Amino acid sequence: MELIRGLHNLRKKHQGCVVTIGNFDGVHLGHQAVLQQVKAKAEELNLPSVVVIFEPQPREFFAGSQAPARITRFRDKVERLKAQGVDRVLCLSFNRRLASLSAQAFIEQVLLAGLGVRYLVVGDDFRFGCDRSGNFALLKQAGAAQGFEVANTHTFEVAAERVSSTRIRQVLADANFVLAQNLLGLPYQISGRVIHGQKLGRQLGVPTANLSLQNKQPALQGVYAVLMATQDQVLRQGVANIGNRPTVSGVRPALEVNLFDFNGDLYGQRVQVIFCSKLRDEVRFANVEALREQIQRDQLAARAYFANHADQGIPLAQNKLNLTDNL
């Protein structure tokens, strides 16, 4: 799969394709149904399939910290799109220039001049352009005039309810990881590179592997029993805290994982953290000693969870860790 960052990196060879546009946050089963629709038409027309996404997502640009939480980090999203067999991903920087682009200019600059779209798949509620002035009807009109076809996406339901990113955010907030897996098509997880932190966990006797969330508000907050897949693809049990760490005056969202019975060096490794069960909410403790005691109780609770679920097994992501690309 080819990842193209920005319109300026499109070349003549990228002209002529079957396109869909959206945030694709989570690349859930609903998204996967759209991608299958796009791929089927691309195969029929003997054209490449292209997914257009935005970074940051439009609501993050306009709403900032009030935007919906991220289900999937950028790299995870691209990896999952790749796993679905998409030929190309065009990532557009959502900035003031793009936000001010009229709907007609978006059609002309992105869809026609940039991609030479032959077939476009979007929802009939799709809105685009400055002030969200563009809609499905305008795309159909443009397609009739410019020689490309516009098709509506197929709705995908689980338990008689449409699968959407909004629904998955609520399911994750409720810590219903079984339903989340049924909607996503794989266990809910966050991947990232282990970075150096404050070393506070080591001082407390519970060293942690820290993952940066890049200032994106996560879909989860609290303390969880987790599995971590390290570079060797081995699953290890542990406890994770995801949030702002109020007891130690944290100000940015962070993910910290304490692995049981592990003393290795993970710095610099890319890992996957798979969330299994919520233990408690994140709270502020009176002092560090109270935090230490609670961490010990969290470890006991997580070990008990894994002991009671030893026969269930949780699979790794369908896409294995990619440690060599430059996403």
Rank of each mutant, 00 (worst) to 15 (best):
M1V: 10
L3G: 05
G6Y: 07
G6S: 08
N9A: 10
H14T: 00
Q15M: 10
V18Q: 04
T20S: 15
G22V: 06
F24G: 12
V27T: 00
G30Y: 04
H31W: 01
E43W: 09
E43Y: 10
L45H: 07
L47V: 02
P48W: 04
V51E: 12
V51M: 11
F61T: 07
R70F: 06
T72E: 07
R75Y: 09
R75L: 08
E79M: 14
L81T: 08
L90H: 01
L90A: 02
S93L: 15
R96V: 12
L98Q: 09
L98F: 13
A99P: 03
A103F: 09
A103K: 05
F106N: 00
L111T: 12
G114C: 02
G116E: 10
V117Y: 04
L120K: 10
L120W: 09
V122P: 02
G129E: 09
G134C: 00
G134S: 08
F136N: 05
A137W: 02
K140G: 11
G143H: 09
A144W: 03
A151W: 10
H154Q: 13
H154S: 12
A159M: 07
A160V: 14
A160H: 13
A175V: 02
F177R: 01
V178L: 11
Q181E: 14
L186N: 06
Q189F: 09
I190R: 03
S191V: 00
S191D: 00
R193Q: 01
V194K: 00
H196N: 08
G197T: 09
L211H: 06
Q214V: 05
N215I: 02
K216E: 10
K216S: 05
Q217W: 03
A219S: 14
L220H: 03
Q221N: 14
L227G: 01
A229Y: 11
A229F: 08
T230H: 12
Q237D: 02
G238V: 07
V239T: 08
I242M: 05
G250R: 03
V251G: 04
D261Q: 03
D265N: 13
L266P: 04
Q269D: 12
F275Y: 05
L279Q: 04
V283Q: 15
V283R: 08
F285T: 05
V288I: 15
R292V: 01
R292K: 14
R292G: 08
Q296E: 11
R297C: 00
D298A: 03
Q299S: 11
A302Y: 01
F306E: 06
D311Q: 15
A317P: 13
N319M: 11
K320H: 13
K320L: 14
N322I: 12
L323G: 10
